[in-house]
């Protein structure tokens, strides 16, 4: 079964769980806001009292999720379209392809992701689509400095997993195969500009020579933005590629993290049963979750610099 997780708009009225973590890396923002959105849809808040060791029973997932065709929406989702005319906005979408997922699924996944975002925002096109290939990081120092970060709750044990264990970067040819899909979206007018993330000069040179539609944007982690190598700056300028900053981590949704969110532990929302759990009377799903992709969308009112809508969708497969 396909699971579609969503955060809704995380900008306004951030639920309590976001508050402490909204400033951390994107992975924390994603996981906290997924949790918070689920919590908000459950009639009783589940994470209320864990001091006495007993958990209050959570409502059945069926009461706050929606099954539609072969997909389960977690939680039940209603789109919140943008208010002002489309041309008032800059809509940026970043699509994270996840490690260990066959690249040949990406064509379908990309369409699916764009479709979700367009429906959510009530728009017919997006301005910038950035794709993040698994295992890419800007330079080797990256990972070390990541590990220096103090681990932060609630997903602390998965923090390292978020940055490690994401496999080696794939070869340029695989990326180019994916890129053909994006070029098609571009030619269909669904996407005005394309972007990539964490490319250094060597990779860029190889990549660019084989693209029909050149990326307009290369995103670099914000920690490194003041030490961007001169050659990259010059090359990007020459190729008219804008170097933008981001603060996402490389693997935004490791399987363990998703399992924990959906699971029945004290940090989970109680959709998935525990290993060997016979059930405490509340119906739960069973099986292995395999995260497929994550998409982040941001709609900014151009001439006011106000972020009106920002959120994520994460899609996973649940297998018996």
């Amino acid at each position: 079964m396909k699971l579609i997780l969503s955060t809704s708009n995380i900008m306004s009225g951030g639920p309590s769980v976001i508050r402490r973590h909204i400033f951390e890396k994107s992975n924390i923002e994603l996981t906290s806001s997924l949790l918070a959105n689920c919590t908000a849809h459950q009639s009783t808040p589940p994470i209320s009292n864990t001091t006495n060791g007993t958990l209050p029973s959570k409502p059945s997932y069926k009461s706050w999720t929606t099954q539609q065709d072969s997909a389960l929406w977690i939680p039940t989702h209603i789109a919140s379209p943008l208010v002002e005319p489309r041309e008032a906005y800059d809509i940026t979408v970043k699509l994270f392809y996840l490690p260990n997922i066959p690249a040949d699924r990406r064509c379908v996944q990309t369409r699916e992701a764009i479709d979700l975002v367009l429906k959510e925002l009530g728009a017919s096109s997006i301005d910038l689509l950035i794709v993040s290939f698994p295992g890419m990081s800007f330079d080797a120092d990256d990972e070390e400095s990541d590990l220096d970060d103090p681990p932060s709750a609630p997903m602390s044990e998965n923090d390292n997993e978020a940055d490690a264990g994401d496999g080696a970067p794939e070869d340029i040819d695989t990326m180019l195969t994916t890129w053909r899909t994006l070029e098609t979206l571009h030619s269909e007018g669904l996407v005005s500009k394309l972007g990539i993330a964490e490319f250094n000069v060597t990779k860029l040179e190889k990549f660019l020579s084989q693209t029909k539609v050149k990326p307009s944007v290369n995103q670099i982690n914000v920690r490194d933005c003041c030490v961007v190598p001169k050659p990259l700056i010059l090359y990007a300028k020459q190729q008219q590629i804008e170097l933008l900053t981001h603060n996402d981590c490389t693997n935004v949704l490791p399987p363990g993290t998703l399992r924990e969110i959906l699971g029945s532990g004290d940090k989970g929302v109680g959709v998935l049963a525990r290993e060997g759990e016979t059930g405490d009377g509340v119906e739960k799903l069973k099986g292995d979750v395999e995260p497929q992709w994550v998409v982040k969308y941001t709609a900014v009112v151009k001439d006011r610099g106000v972020v009106e809508s920002k959120g994520y969708f994460a899609v996973a497969e649940l297998r018996d």
Partner: peptide, 15 residues
């Protein structure tokens, strides 16, 4: 910072 992280800011400007 959190606001800036939600915006498309080029590296030079961010710096």
């Amino acid at each position: 910072e959190s606001y800036l992280n939600s915006m498309n800011v080029d590296v030079e400007t961010r710096c």
